[in-house]
Simulated scan of single mutants.
Amino acid sequence: MTTSQSKAPAPEVKDCPVCKGTGEVSRTVRVGRRHRPVGQQTGLCLNCLGSGQAPD
């Protein structure tokens, strides 16, 4: 006799709205007296803590 196991559907995972699912966010780096932008620095997304998934 065989039994079939029915699995519950996996919950749909949504991307984090802040980092768009990448887990990283970019900030403009400014230097000098006039604070001119020279580039961007990436860091960990504090909304999802780098997982890329929307927090509950």
Rank of each mutant, 00 (worst) to 15 (best):
R34K: 14
V18F: 06
K14L: 15
V29S: 07
G32D: 09
G52C: 04
P9Y: 04
V31L: 14
P55Q: 06
P11M: 08
A8Y: 07
A10R: 15
P55H: 02
Q5D: 13
R36F: 03
G52K: 03
N47C: 03
K14I: 04
G39W: 11
C19S: 04
K20A: 10
P17R: 14
R30K: 15
V13Y: 07
A54Q: 14
V18M: 13
P9C: 07
G23H: 05
V25Q: 06
T3W: 11
Q41N: 04
M1L: 10
K7C: 12
E12A: 15
G43P: 00
G39C: 06
G50M: 01
L44C: 03
V25K: 05
T28D: 08
C16Q: 08
M1E: 12
D15L: 12
S26C: 04
L49S: 08
T28I: 11
K20C: 05
V38K: 08
L46P: 06
L44I: 03
N47W: 00
G43T: 06
V13K: 15
G23I: 03
V18P: 00
T3D: 14
K20H: 10
N47E: 08
R30L: 10
E24F: 11
V38C: 06
Q40W: 02
T28L: 09
E24D: 02
K20Q: 12
P9H: 09
V38F: 06
A8L: 13
D56L: 06
V13G: 04
G21W: 02
R27C: 00
R36M: 04
G43M: 11
G21H: 07
G39E: 09
T28K: 13
G43E: 10
T3I: 15
C48P: 00
P37R: 04
T2S: 13
C48I: 01
G23S: 05
G50K: 02
Q53L: 02
S51E: 04
T22Y: 01
K7R: 15
N47L: 04
L49I: 00
H35T: 01
E24M: 12
E24C: 01
K14W: 07
T2C: 09
C45G: 01
P11D: 03
C16A: 07
G43N: 00
L46Q: 11
T42M: 06
R27Q: 10
M1P: 09
